[in-house]
Write a protein that binds this DNA or RNA. Sequence first.
DNA 1: ATATAGATATCGTGT
DNA 2: ACACGATGTCTATAT
Lengths: 244, 244
Amino acid sequence: MSDRGAGRGARGAGEDALVRLVVARCSVDYRGRLAAHLPIATRLLLVKADGSVSVHSDGSAYKPLNWMSPPCALVEEVPVTDVAPGVWRVANRGGEELVVTVHEVLHDSRHEFGAEPGLVKDGVEADLQRLLARRMDVLGPGWRLVRREYPTAIGPVDLLVRDAADGTVAVEVKRRAEIDGVEQLTRYLELLNRDSLLAPVSGILAAQEFRPQARVLATDRGIRCVVLDLDALRELPDDGTRLF
Amino acid sequence: MSDRGAGRGARGAGEDALVRLVVARCSVDYRGRLAAHLPIATRLLLVKADGSVSVHSDGSAYKPLNWMSPPCALVEEVPVTDVAPGVWRVANRGGEELVVTVHEVLHDSRHEFGAEPGLVKDGVEADLQRLLARRMDVLGPGWRLVRREYPTAIGPVDLLVRDAADGTVAVEVKRRAEIDGVEQLTRYLELLNRDSLLAPVSGILAAQEFRPQARVLATDRGIRCVVLDLDALRELPDDGTRLF
DNA sequence: ATATAGATATCGTGT
DNA sequence: ACACGATGTCTATAT
């Protein structure tokens, strides 16, 4: 039985980074944060240049059935006889181990990918916050931004604003408002209301979507819920502040 | 230009469910919950029988750079000339769309996987709760279980127990205790303490791991933190209740 | 290195 | 179908 390294650590100097695709009848065992087992079946074994190994079935969307995240080391035990299974042992430093028992290889290929330029995203929470910051008219006429990321002892408040009556309002921005967003804003409000220079401070939870429980809890606590529309936020404010 | 269906919906009656592996130089655009773009590079396109498509780079562990979750339909526009790119359009019912522009195909294969027996897990939160329920000695001598999943108006309390002095205790079990676990238990305690038949009710947060903030907040609110050891919980209680 | 917050989170379960 | 909680969450950011 011979061993062959295939993780990043084991790759030789002149060797290129390759993605390896193996289709095989295999069984899989994981032992780490929990224990998990996969009975024998045909699956895709995806070995990336970062050393990660993932085991995909023909389903469950993009999530593999089992995997080992990098950095980890793969040791492949080649079978002695044609009938004996091969064994892949993938381990990381935290003592987690993934063992793939390969009974039959149906496909095995390697591919060079080269550099990945990376994903460009638009419309995440940070974008919502930035867009809302310049659209105070969405909250009400005469509202003004005090500042974004207003610092407190327990973390920054997304937006601190003043309403038309000069009252202070803390705004928490979420893509989806859930119950812990309400709790988070409640903690900020509790803290800000201890500051006699700011108090009384009211709260607004602003999000593209609201979970019903979040809306109920927010309303119960006197927190206003504002639904954000990404496309509408991208438009310029129509409140007389335009230059044309 | 001809169209060819490849999603579950478009698959013909006699056709088998196949996993398709394509390695290609491609660019990708997603428009849905947010917008995302991938410049041209070599990547793996993984098309599963459930209709899902995922775009993997040689990195970022098991997560694809971009994807479309099932149920969705893939329409492949075959290029008219050899130099023109092929275009894959993947759409779901929610109006989300993933467009893959395929500039050069380096590999294209299909594989039949057959049935997936499924993953067997051991050591998740439900297991912790079940194991702790029969190991009340871990909480203290003379403690007894009242019931698991004790129902309240805002959801079930993991464990309701009585301490040696017959005081009622609500136990929240987590694999990892975070701040929202403390908030959750706090809400339960607030509710249970309104019940004159139960009050006073104290709280225990039991978890394999504790985030420091969770421990601080719990302690501040008089909630006891108990660290759970999965292996120790599996042993039988050593409190005289054994039969041997 | 550690802790915190966001995510196209995904996935299973109960109503 | 919808909502909610768990996840081997994972990943990027700030301290």
